[in-house]
Amino acid sequence: MQISPHTGSQLVDLCSALLLLTCFAIVAQRRLSACVDLFALQSAFLVLTAALVAFLTGNPHIYIAAGLTGLIKVIIIPRVLKKVIERLNVKRELVMNINVPAGLLICGALVMLAFFITQPIIPLGFLLTRDSLAIALAIVLIGFFTMIARQKAVTQLVGFLVMENGLFLGATAATYGMPLIVELGVFFDVLIAALIAGIYTNRLQDAFDSVDTTHLTVLKE
């Protein structure tokens, strides 16, 4: 089956647009477990995008990266996070550093910023995925913003993972993916980071009876 480059490029754009859409859903979502589900959904869209790019360009190593993303980010990490959330005494985040409507507006501004930054670079590219670069940068910025705006360790971790998704999309968009050995290293790092953060969240819960990271800024005797 052959897809014309124009249609292929549009499909990639559509998939990356869906990725960005889930970012906004994460910013607007207060329930912790729903945030994790949305992250799993976003990773599933990422798998779809990567598989699409692999199919369109015929680079088999992107399939492997997509498969690993599916295994680690759609299945393992959400499971680990769900386990962590089960132990917590909070189900939803009521107090945030920045409230939801303001956060959404800031994220809208971040998308515009990403667009203006990548605007001079994109026409220089010749890959069919080049338009996704703006979206990838926007996802990284929104993930970063989520880490700032939220107080609970779990949602901060989700923000971190969203950033990582954005980086993966950016690498796929800009260069059709990094060398496989680098991808493998990154996946391993992300998995370990998620596991460590999960353990750290549990310790936080035990020490302070809360997963609010602002407790860490004050000294405890």
Binding site: L20, V100, P101
Partner: peptide
């Protein structure tokens, strides 16, 4: 309700932005 309508506003804004981002 403001959260939900905020999402609607942002979605519409993104629609506009995507028109420009993806036009190239």
């Amino acid at each position: 309700v403001t959260d939900l309508l905020g999402v609607a506003f942002i979605l519409a804004l993104l629609g506009l932005l995507f028109f420009y981002i993806l036009r190239s």
